[in-house]
């Protein structure tokens, strides 16, 4: 399976929005202590409770002892320079890393108090509860209707055609796409614009009625107008879903998220309320990053 290259490639965004390129300009005098995170990484109302998480790709350690809580019905943003491990970490939350042979996850990862990586855990059930939206819109080469109906069908969520129609309609409505596509539900999804495709993917993800939606740079392949629509959508969805979003745009993190986590070279450096991170960061690496001194 050639999934590994692809997944690692996901780590490197095609369009890096930060002005200054990568590692050389990073301040070298700052030492990050392993497993130490400043700010408020923990929460009383945790949906995910993650402790001492480590991820290995073969010999190399991509995630270094991260502990973090992700609060219920909130939007959590992961920010950080390219290759810092945010996407890898995100993919642990619904075990999408499973398909990579050399990827090993250690530590305790719990969703509502149940271990995600328990050997008895049913991945299908986990992923039905924790949906995901990818960096590049990836609609199936099927009709718009079939794309949204895909999840409900495999999970048997609808007994009759009418139920399925209803799920499709409500999902498309939640994704703000219904008015645009209601007359051409049988048209193939790959013919839509990039922004529409991405919203279709969001509709597809929420059609399964998940509790959590993971978003891996959902706007990096979209134009500003489509981005604005998706961000609006995230704000609406956060009322009923827990959302984790990886983003390279700090404005986006500031606009949509309640809490922000800053990753650096596999470490979780700082977690706090979003406005706090962007107005008064505690760690100097966070400050350097958000002020644009390195990307």
């Amino acid at each position: 399976m050639n999934s590994m290259n692809q997944s690692i490639a996901n780590e490197v965004p095609s369009e890096d929005e930060s002005p200054v390129p990568v590692a050389e300009s990073q301040p070298t005098d700052t030492v990050i202590e392993e497993g130490k995170t400043v700010g408020k990484p923990f929460s009383d109302n945790a949906k995910f409770s993650l402790r001492d998480v480590e991820v290995f790709y073969g010999q190399s350690r991509a995630i270094k002892k991260i502990s973090l809580d992700i609060a219920r019905n909130q939007v959590m943003a992961f920010i950080g320079p390219s290759g810092c491990g945010k996407s890898t970490f995100l993919r642990c939350l619904n075990r999408m890393n499973d398909s990579i042979d050399i990827c090993k996850v250690k530590g305790s990862l719990q969703l509502d108090g149940q271990d995600i990586y328990d050997s008895k855990r049913d991945v299908v059930e986990l992923r039905a509860r924790v949906g995901m939206v990818f960096q590049k819109p990836n609609p199936f080469p099927k009709s718009i209707y079939d794309n949204v109906a895909y999840g409900p069908r495999i999970h048997g969520l609808a007994n009759r055609k009418a139920d399925l129609d209803e799920i499709v309609e409500s999902s498309l409505r939640k994704a703000g796409l219904w008015e645009e596509v209601k007359d051409r539900l049988e048209a193939t999804a790959t013919g839509m614009s990039g922004g529409q495709q991405q919203r279709l993917c969001i509709a597809r993800a929420i059609a399964v009625n998940p509790e959590v939606v993971l978003m891996d740079e959902p706007c990096s392949a979209l134009d500003p107008i489509a981005t604005a629509k998706v961000e609006e959508l995230i704000a609406e969805l956060s009322e009923s879903y827990t959302i984790v979003i990886v983003t390279h745009s700090m404005q986006q993190a500031a606009r949509v998220s309640h809490r922000t986590a800053y990753f650096h070279l596999g470490h979780l450096v700082e977690v706090n309320e979003t406005n706090k991170v962007f107005t008064s960061p505690e760690h100097e690496l966070t400050e350097s990053y958000i002020t644009g001194r390195f990307g």
Binding site: N2, S3, Q6, S7, N94, M96, S99, V123, V124, E125, L126, R127, A128, G131, M132, F134, K136, N138, P139, F140, P141, K142, Y150, G151, I154, H155, C201, R204, A205, V208
Partner: peptide, 27 residues
Amino acid sequence: VPQTLRDGSLALGATQSETMKKVIFPA
């Protein structure tokens, strides 16, 4: 067939054989 389609299907909670049958094979 792009890996993104596999990921998309797996992330919706489809099993490997469902992904094969309903997404990869038709594509």
